[in-house]
């Protein structure tokens, strides 16, 4: 029996925006099922552009992207978007339906699932992020941390192969940050986390990839990457004051 295909395969991906600005210059990335990987890099490194390629929002450059063996192309777009769940940075962008329950149901209903199955998935997804009682509440009644967790539920309900999080810890207070980490650690999915929060990357992701100037400049164990001061300095990555990755955990 052959091993399962990688959850995510990015092969020599290059992309230039219509205005001529080239953001990616040949990115290679491979995520095995169940891996948790942090995507690090300074602002303008091409992280968001890469993320937009993972579910086919951006296409048309060189190279290819495959999700669990399925190439990203026009005819596979709906299935790719089911398999790759992107949680955007601002939960107010992610939660656009009038109630939490309707929002979590948005994806499954777009998949055309029967209503009992939709209800089951909504309940499961909200339970997974510890927000089971928020079903009928409007999103603007929730705290920021709760909204972020509900935003995760909105893609979990599509039962994705890969969960992509854009700056999951931004704007969270320390308790909200810890609660989200506890939720993310429990999820049985492949995780790609775009972040500037290096301690968070170390806490959640055994492996990290550094993107800068549109190429992958480092790929390895998070603890080792974060201990490499020259690497961090060369790519505008900085640890918080007093944080030493060698003595943590």
């Amino acid at each position: 029996m052959s091993p399962p295909p990688p959850s995510l395969l990015v092969d020599d991906l290059a992309f230039a925006y219509p205005d001529g600005h080239q953001a990616l210059f040949g990115v290679d990335l491979r995520l095995e099922p169940g891996e948790r990987v942090a995507l690090l890099g300074p602002n303008g490194a091409g992280k968001t552009t890469l993320v937009m390629h993972l579910n086919g929002i951006l296409r048309g450059g060189r190279g290819r992207v495959e999700v669990a063996g399925l190439p990203v192309e026009d005819r596979t777009l709906q299935e790719v978007r089911r398999r790759v769940g992107i949680v955007f940075q601002d939960p107010d962008d992610q939660l656009f339906m009038p109630t939490v329950g309707e929002d979590v149901a948005f994806g499954p209903r777009n998949l055309g699932l029967p209503e009992p199955e939709v209800a089951r998935r909504v309940a499961d997804a909200l339970a997974a992020v510890d927000m089971a009682d928020a079903h009928t509440r409007p999103p603007h009644h929730l705290s920021f941390g709760q909204r972020r967790r509900v935003a995760v539920a909105t893609v979990l309900s599509m039962q994705p192969e890969v969960l992509v999080l854009d700056e999951p810890s931004s704007n969270l207070d320390p308790a909200g940050r810890r609660e989200l980490a506890e939720v993310l650690e429990q999820l049985p999915v492949t995780l790609l986390m775009v972040t500037h929060d290096l301690p968070y990357a170390l806490q959640l992701c055994p492996r990290s990839v550094v993107l800068d100037g549109g190429v992958v400049v480092a790929d390895g164990a998070t603890r080792e990457l974060l201990a490499d001061r020259e690497l961090l300095a060369a790519h505008r990555l900085e640890l918080p004051f007093g944080f030493d990755p060698r003595t943590v955990g």
Partner: peptide, 23 residues
């Protein structure tokens, strides 16, 4: 700009032009 970001978030969850309604 928020509208554009919301639209991206909707596309990412399989939006096809209609808001799906429940039963």
């Amino acid at each position: 700009e928020r509208g554009e970001r919301v639209h991206l978030a909707m596309l990412s969850r399989g939006y096809t032009g209609r808001l799906p309604t429940g039963p």
